[in-house]
């Protein structure tokens, strides 16, 4: 059994629905961080969903529409759309190829379905990468103290530019800056302004900004690296 085959079966069983909750969370983490895995999930969704063509349609109660309408966000989901546009704009501006674009789109698609269990503490790590073979930074977060360390791995900022780290979460209308990184091999800081759930669920992105970081507090340059946290040692 190769790892590739294990992944294929994980993707297939995820779509079929036979995974237990921990395995489902693992699969959802992979969907968000591994474009190749996300593609395999899309493959199985595309094939197995044909089975639903045979399910007898059942009319839901008529009161359900009223409930749904009443629960729609007042702004018509404007915040989420805004975030999506931002990510898309970043994508088109960026020189990063399809893998990142897919990862971002998949992230937008799954982030609400993804309800990870929330550990009290422990070390979490994210590989911030352009694609599977090009890691730029390693982000390590201690969920107990909320301190994080960013280690520069393969990233080299263009001349006269800085890397800036952002926390992206649908609770916020725009990405939150976590500061300039990469000037040295290690950058240390804290996420004390954010609760553990947000830290755990967020996507971490690195953009290229003017020296010293974005002057406006809003990301201006292309996203070059992106990743999500996974537990380093369960």
């Amino acid at each position: 059994m190769t790892m590739e085959e294990d992944r294929e079966i994980l993707a297939g069983e995820y779509v079929l629905g036979t995974l237990d909750p921990n395995e489902r969370a693992q699969a959802e983490r992979l969907i968000a961080t591994d474009a190749a895995f996300a593609t395999r999930v899309r493959y199985w969704e595309g094939r197995l969903t044909a089975l639903s063509d045979a399910v007898e349609p059942v009319e839901p109660p008529s009161a359900l529409w009223t409930r749904i309408l009443g629960a729609l966000p007042a702004a018509g989901g404007a915040q989420i759309i805004d975030l999506t546009r931002r990510l898309k704009r970043w994508q088109t501006a960026t020189y990063v190829a399809g893998a990142l674009a897919a990862a971002l789109l998949v992230f937008v698609g799954v982030r609400e379905a993804y309800q990870p269990r929330l550990p009290e503490g422990g070390k979490f790590v994210a590989v911030l990468q352009q694609d599977k073979v090009s890691p730029g930074f390693l982000l390590t977060v201690d969920l107990r103290t909320k301190e994080f360390t960013v280690r520069r791995v393969g990233a080299e900022a263009p001349r006269d530019r800085s890397f800036e780290l952002w926390l992206v979460h649908d609770k916020f209308p725009s990405p939150r800056s976590l500061g300039v990184i990469g000037d040295h091999e290690f950058t240390r800081a804290a996420l004390s302004a954010y609760d553990r759930q947000i830290i755990n669920e967020a996507t971490y992105a690195v953009s290229v900004e003017p020296p010293g970081g974005s002057p406006t507090g809003v990301a201006t340059g292309p996203i070059v690296y992106v990743g999500k946290l996974i537990e380093a040692v369960p």
Binding site: P60, L64, R67, I68, L72, G77, T84, L105, E112
Partner: peptide
Amino acid sequence: ADEVIQETYLKIWGSAGS
């Protein structure tokens, strides 16, 4: 089923752009 369908359409509304 009511609960899941309500959540589903809220999610569809929120993610339609993606």
